[in-house]
Computed example of a mutant assay.
Amino acid sequence: MTSFPYVSYLRVFEPLDAFSDDEQLLIMEQRSRDRRATEELDRGESLRRITRTVSDPFPHDSEDLVRVLHYPSPEGLTTPYYCPNQLAVRSTLAAESISHSLHNPLLGLLLPEAARDAQQQRLDPDTFADSLAKLHTRSSTWGIPFGWFVLFREDDHAEVIEGRHGVETVRLSAPLMQCIDRARYAAASLAVAAPGLDLLDELTEITEWMETFTLSGMLELDYGRVADMVYPDDSPSDVQAGIESLAEGDMTGAAAAYRRLATRWIKIRQLARAS
């Protein structure tokens, strides 16, 4: 497996009828490809973009990828749900974020102005606006936001993907409406017990994001390569225990839950600062 940074993803998967006719045609063309093949295609394309002779990390005219989640029912059957990669939009947003934190000449080396201008020319304004309003994928580098763990439980569907060198990733998935209910309950508890916590704002924002999608969809947390360093992972349980302790006024319990979380994830966050 090619070595890539520790990036984790939170993805919304929707049923086929939630998409436009053009999107459904794209999905139908790719629905038979298995998930591992899709991930390998995505990694391969990323590697080709960053190793171009001329510095230009943006995707050009390649067809967008679609991920398929086969979610199991209690009867043992599976239902397919779909998540478009929306790479052109996400790469544009990432470039804008970098441009606010870097300055020339470093910005010019990583994202030449000519490449940024060409990317703007390639984007269709209507398609870009639609994708921006309904962005199916969120990403986090060098760790998973604790707010994401609020959305999942230890008994949710889990898929462990192993490779030759250990765990490649772990994917947790749950019905979107269930995740929204969990976020709302946690936010309501924090609003009373700890209204000053940044986690409350994070949960409010992420709930609004989830509510833009078809409520019959599914939510997936894809750990990425960080899974090999933390799995088996008790973070969802620890976050839940911390919020419940705060709601009950148990500061000792809340502090203990936070210490467990911090101890588990500090080694990964330190890698972001390693030279």
Rank of each mutant, 00 (worst) to 15 (best):
M1W: 01
T2N: 11
S3L: 07
Y6A: 10
V7E: 12
V7D: 05
S8P: 14
R11Y: 02
V12L: 09
E14L: 08
E14C: 07
L16N: 07
L16R: 00
A18D: 09
D22Y: 07
D22W: 13
E23N: 08
E23P: 13
I27N: 10
M28R: 14
Q30A: 00
D34C: 03
R35H: 15
E39I: 06
R43G: 04
G44C: 01
E45I: 09
L47D: 15
L47Y: 08
R49Y: 09
I50H: 05
T53Y: 01
T53P: 15
V54K: 01
V54I: 03
S55K: 04
P57S: 07
F58D: 02
E63H: 07
L65H: 08
R67D: 12
R67K: 12
H70V: 04
Y71P: 15
Y71M: 10
Y71V: 01
S73D: 03
G76Q: 08
L77H: 14
L77E: 14
P80T: 00
Q86M: 06
R90T: 09
R90A: 00
A94L: 02
A95D: 04
S97V: 11
S99L: 05
H100E: 13
L102S: 12
H103A: 15
H103W: 10
H103Q: 13
N104P: 13
P105T: 03
L109N: 15
L109Y: 06
L110F: 10
L110D: 12
L111P: 15
A118P: 12
Q121L: 05
D124Q: 09
P125K: 04
T127R: 11
S131Q: 10
H136A: 05
T137V: 05
R138F: 04
R138D: 09
S140V: 00
P145Q: 01
F146K: 03
F146P: 15
W148G: 10
W148A: 06
F149Q: 04
V150I: 07
L151I: 10
R153Q: 13
R153P: 06
D155N: 03
D156T: 11
D156L: 01
H157S: 07
E159Y: 08
E159P: 14
I161H: 08
I161P: 13
G163R: 00
H165W: 07
G166W: 02
V167G: 15
R171T: 08
S173Y: 06
L176D: 04
Q178S: 08
I180G: 09
D181N: 15
A183R: 04
A188V: 14
A188S: 10
S189D: 09
S189P: 13
A193W: 00
A193R: 12
A193C: 12
A194V: 06
D198Q: 14
L203D: 08
I206G: 01
E208R: 04
G217P: 11
G217L: 03
M218L: 09
D222Q: 00
Y223M: 10
V230L: 07
Y231C: 13
Y231I: 09
Y231T: 14
D233M: 04
S235V: 02
P236A: 03
V239C: 05
Q240T: 15
A241T: 12
G242D: 09
E248V: 10
G249T: 09
G249I: 00
D250W: 03
M251V: 15
G253S: 02
R259C: 12
L261S: 08
T263I: 05
I266H: 15
I268M: 14
R269A: 02
A272M: 10
A272Q: 15
A272T: 08
S275M: 10
S275Q: 11
